[in-house]
Design a binder for these strands. Structure first.
Length: 537
DNA sequence: CTGGGGACGGGGCCC
DNA sequence: TGGGCCCCGTCCCCA
């Protein structure tokens, strides 16, 4: 008894799920493109991926070996067993595919490419050298062919994973985990001197003597190995991910510990705990870590971005209220905006969390949305913008909150609802009457009233009002923690946090309760404490 | 079990 | 663009 087409149907389902991002548990970064996929499928197709996916949820591929467009074909092949129409596949493309297939140790695809080249009368030249069955000649990039190096030790390209994520699996919260983390952090700190790594330049200058890991000083291991094991420099610019190219965003591998050493005993750190009034909490707060384990359009935990702040009335700033979404910018990825669920789709069920601004259609994944957005021509977008602007002009200010792309605001903002500076001597916000010192501050302030969030996270799709916030958010995905405590090695994403943390070691408690005299190291804890005083109970 | 305190992560916003 | 600060939320420890 055998179910006909079972495997075919299974693959079909998987591919459909991939298209929707459903149950995808790994993200592959290729240059500036992100691909979501299923670990099982990748592992079943490629020895290379098989070695990586157990450890990493985010995998960065060498862009000299595979381009986004090529990888898309590769992924399609993995999920369908087919290559796209041969008409559209040039020999050059096939060669590129062959290189990629060899790099990724997709032997079947490599063989297919070779056959295709042969049929076309091409001799798989350099790329052929990289095929599983052929020579060990280095790739144009200096890589050694992957398939020839099926080391028992999984060799990493540039796995991007959050070590917090790994740590949080541990059942025992104390003791060993603390030590483990402490050791890891201690090692991180030791790596700090070797930080000749340039983000934008995508170059790692130094290699630790052991060669097992390079740190960029941000707590990240920049060591990058091709599947074959040849260590290469970081090829993927962090700006690919962050787009805004934060200087700290260079490294893509937050894990400081290569697989071969991940289980190694952490070096005991100095008796830093002894210095502390109370040992800093060592439990990685990974419970809510934003690992890229995205599923089905999932954005992370407290998602629903808009309502989180706008609705909370935090600090009374989010005023402005109403107004639905807005148009995204027309450049790059920012032409979509995550906005409030609209009538007709339920985030919890349909997961159409990614909404195309021009047409309002919802999609379960950013990929689908991006693909859809591509169907809008710039002309369409501009045309619609102009139409809406005309409508807004007729609406007399009511359309101000429609949420334009702030970056798209022309300098003469009069037509956008922001009165010219000349008309607002005190630079008053037209929404809350806040007085700003200059037009720049006013503009920035007024952005806080907009309901659109022009800066999407490339990894989880979450949207932000400010680029800086988005960049900061990306650090959490990438595990970028540039600021290390010299006492205990603990690392932070923000300098302010480090300064705050240092008070744990110094014992300084600058925040005093005026009611009971209680002192606190953190202001937020004082505020929390004050609420205890003021709460009715 | 519960409440308070310690510590930390993340986002918003202003400078 | 990044730093600094604020707020919210959370987890853990401990009395």
């Amino acid at each position: 008894m055998e179910q006909q087409n079972h495997s075919k149907q299974l693959l079909l389902q998987l591919n459909q799920q991939r298209a929707k991002g459903y149950l995808c548990d790994v993200i592959i970064v290729v240059e500036n493109a992100l691909f979501r996929a299923h670990k099982n499928v990748l592992a079943a197709s490629s020895v290379y991926f098989k070695s990586l996916v157990p450890h990493d949820n985010l995998i960065n591929l060498d862009t000299e070996m595979v381009s986004p467009s090529i990888f898309r074909q590769v992924l399609d092949f993995i999920y369908t067993g087919r290559l796209s129409s041969s008409d559209s596949v040039s020999d050059h493309s096939i060669s590129s595919l062959l290189i990629a297939a060899s790099y990724l140790q997709l032997t079947e695809l490599a063989a297919l490419c070779r056959r295709k080249l042969k049929c076309n009368g091409q001799t798989p030249s350099s790329s052929n050298k990289m095929t599983p069955s052929s020579s060990t000649s280095p790739t144009p990039n200096g890589h050694t062919p992957g398939p020839l190096h099926l080391s028992s030790t999984p060799l990493r390209a540039t796995p991007i994973h959050n070590h917090q994520h790994h740590n949080n699996h541990s059942g025992s919260k104390k003791g060993s985990q603390r030590n483990q983390r402490r050791g890891q952090e201690g090692r991180l700190r030791e790596d700090l001197p070797e930080k000749e790594v340039y983000i934008s330049g995508s170059r790692c200058a130094s290699l630790s003597p052991s060669g097992e890991g390079r740190s960029n000083g941000l707590g990240l291991d920049l060591s990058k190995r091709s599947p074959s094991g040849s260590t290469t420099t970081e090829e993927v610019s962090p700006s690919s991910l962050l787009q805004s190219s934060s200087p700290h965003s260079s490294s893509l591998s937050p894990t400081p510990t290569p697989p071969t050493t991940s289980s190694a005993k952490p070096e005991p750190s100095k008796t830093s705990t002894d210095l502390q009034p109370r040992a800093p909490r060592k439990r990685p707060r990974g419970d809510k870590v934003t690992t890229p384990e995205l599923e089905d359009g999932e954005v992370d935990g407290e998602e629903n971005g808009l309502d989180q702040s706008e609705g909370s009335g935090q600090s009374g700033r989010g005023g402005g209220g109403g107004g639905g979404g807005g148009k995204g910018s027309r450049n790059g990825n920012t032409n979509y905006i995550y906005r409030q669920p609209q009538p007709g789709f339920e985030p919890g069920v349909g997961d159409n969390l990614y909404v195309c601004i021009p047409c309002g259609k919802g999609f379960p994944s950013s990929e689908q949305l991006n693909a859809h957005v591509d169907t809008h021509t710039h002309d369409q977008l501009y045309l619609k913008d102009e139409e809406e602007e005309e409508e807004e002009e007729e609406e007399e200010g009511g359309g101000y909150l429609k949420g334009k792309d702030p970056d798209a605001f022309p300098d003469d903002s009069a037509s956008q609802g922001v009165k010219p500076d000349a008309e607002e001597p005190g630079h008053l916000c037209t929404i809350c009457s806040k007085s700003c010192k200059d037009s720049t501050s006013l503009r920035q302030h007024e952005k806080s009233h907009w309901l659109n969030r022009p800066f999407p996270c490339n990894i989880c799709g979450k949207l932000f009002t400010q680029r800086g916030t988005m960049t900061r958010h990306m650090r959490s995905h990438l595990g970028l923690k540039p600021f290390a405590c010299e006492e205990c090695g603990m690392r932070f994403t923000r300098q302010y946090r480090l300064a705050e943390h240092m008070r744990v070691h110094s014992g300084e408690k600058p925040y005093e309760c005026q009611l009971c005299g209680g002192k606190f190291t953190q202001q937020r804890n004082l505020l929390s404490h004050m609420r205890m005083h003021t709460s009715p109970s």
